[in-house]
Nucleic acid binder design. Structure first.
Length: 479
RNA sequence: GACCCCAUCGUCUAGCGGUUAGGACAUCACCCUUUCACGGUGGUAACACGAGUUCGAGUCUCGUUGGGGUCGCCA
């Protein structure tokens, strides 16, 4: 069966990780069945609209390669794809629904935003709407007189409502537990509860994929489908992405959005790969998936029911895998802008990339790994003490003098030549490699650990700076 | 509070009545090694609890506990 799915975000700001994952599952359901994936902008709440938010949605989906077949920008047979442009459609269907008995006009005032915080009657009662008793003629007369109104869902059914969800199975909810919510607001805009039903039907959506917070209200949507005589879609409710066991991942708590992660040096493909596995697994032990591979491997059956905690540590590991899988040229190309942020000195950047690629997990690690290249840090002479390498400050003085002389004569300033020459020098003076290389690395970096060894650092720094640092180190040792 | 959902190593998960409960991240040890990484090998670590069904339960049923969600003219 060819599925038609939709990603229907509201343009309220960032692309949240949970949203992106939902979009991914929608995309995968469409692609894995040879169906269509569409984009619909749900901007029925003008108060929450954020300038530029739709551009973030477009660019995020494009960045990760989730191309849509129909949408506001490219059109399609079921447009328009922006809800604010469909206002007349909702009004038409809302009035129709009233005639069909699925809704009624309501003149009650909106409840205060900050109504008595802790309602003393702890027993919440279903909203009892007096307007339900109004005759249609009476209601229409009041509307004609200019009185503000809403269209509110009418729920007169008794007993149990049942529906099937692809992930959660059969769910049963008592009709008495359903609220008669507003479908069309005073301003003429629909609420999500109404717009999504009308649009999903009109746009021939076959699979509705959304967060499981919508499970409770699904029976209400089914009532609307029923009243119109429409067939409800296949429901695929997905569990939440959590920050920890108690809290949902949300921008409000300062949790990372997709663009935050990219800005922190994560690769879009790695982020997408990681979130795909947050609630889905292939059934075997593969973990690294490109979008194309996900399209092939994905099935709704392997979606999970329990919430998943977003683990930045594992994402970081996975990002490291993606970075190492980059060709050296591609890594270098992507690293360049990051070098620009923290390095001003003239360095052998190709060599630096070679050293860094297997050692960084995100591009943001570059700054931490290269700080000493920009400027020698202050360091203790005790750094020269190393039992395993059998070195200390006095050994350092001796070997650095030897090295300084030899370095002057090296013509091919690259890692291989440097390493070969230094090895030879060590052998000629009865030294272990480490006794020569360890102090040299300290002299060049002033750090206990560095990305790359002594000769690699020398190759990155260049001849002039290397010799200058060795001389400075000698001066410091002999002071 | 009512209703709905969830429950396997710290985390993501496999498991669909009989397993030494598997993998990945993290962690620890060792190997490799010019430090650090990468890579390799090995280790520690889980079925929330209680009944029941069954010859046999992580797997099925019920309950308890814990957590989450819904109860907006937000989506």
């Amino acid at each position: 069966m060819k599925a038609r799915t939709r990603f229907a975000p509201s343009p309220t700001g960032y692309m949240h990780i949970g949203n992106l994952r939902t979009a991914l599952y929608e995309y995968l359901i469409a692609r894995s069945t040879g169906g269509a994936f569409l984009l619909r902008i749900e901007d029925t709440d003008q108060k929450r609209y954020v300038e530029g938010a739709t551009d973030i949605i477009y660019s995020t989906l494009k960045t990760v390669g989730m191309n849509w077949d129909e949408g506001p920008d490219i059109g399609g047979a079921y447009g328009p794809y922006v809800q604010s442009e469909r206002k007349a459609i909702y009004a038409e269907y809302a009035h129709k629904l009233v005639e069909l008995g699925g809704a009624h006009y309501c003149f009650c005032a909106a409840r205060e935003e900050n109504a008595d915080e802790e309602e003393e009657n702890a027993v919440p009662s279903k909203f009892q709407d007096p307007c339900k008793k109004l005759s249609l003629e009476e209601a229409r007369a009041r509307i004609a007189a200019g009185e503000p109104y809403t269209v509110r869902q009418t729920i007169n059914k008794q007993g149990k409502s049942r529906f099937h969800d692809e992930v959660y199975g059969d769910i049963e909810i008592d009709y008495d537990d359903l609220d008669e919510g507003v479908l069309l607001k005073t301003d003429g805009f629909p609420t999500y509860n109404f717009a999504n039903v009308v649009d999903d039907h009109l746009m021939a959506i076959t699979h509705v994929v959304r967060g499981n917070e919508y499970i409770s209200s699904t029976p209400k949507y089914n009532l609307i489908y029923e009243a119109f005589g429409w067939t409800p879609p296949v429901y695929v409710h997905v569990p939440q992405v959590m920050k920890d066991a108690q809290h949902k991942l949300s921008k409000r708590n300062g949790d990372a959005s997709f663009q935050d992660l990219v800005a922190k040096g994560y690769l879009p493909a790695a982020v997408l790969n990681y979130i795909a596995l947050l609630g889905w697994n292939p059934g075997d032990e593969r973990e690294i998936f490109s979008l194309e591979e996900l399209e092939k491997a994905f099935t709704i059956e392997r979606l999970n029911r329990s919430p998943a905690i977003f683990d930045i540590v594992k994402l970081t590991w996975m990002n490291g895998c993606y970075i190492r899988a980059l060709t050296p040229e591609e890594f270098h190309r992507q690293a360049l802008p990051w070098y620009g942020k923290c390095l001003t000195r003239s360095l052998n950047l190709e060599m630096l990339s070679k050293v860094l690629q297997p050692r960084v997990e995100t591009f943001a690690d570059i700054a931490r790994e290269t700080d000493f290249l920009e400027q020698m840090p202050d360091y203790e002479l005790a750094l020269y003490d190393n039992k395993k390498m059998k070195t200390d400050a006095s050994v350092a003085v001796r070997v650095l003098k030897l090295a300084a002389d030899m370095l002057l004569g090296i013509a091919d300033w690259d890692n291989d030549s440097l390493f070969a020459s230094l090895k030879e020098l060590a052998a000629a003076n009865g030294l272990k490699n480490g006794q020569l290389l360890y102090p040299l690395r300290i002299a060049l970096s002033g750090k206990e650990t560095t990305a790359g060894g002594a000769t690699e650092i020398a190759a990155v720094l260049g001849k002039e700076e290397t010799i200058a640092r060795v001389k400075a180190a000698l001066a410091k040792l002999e002071a």
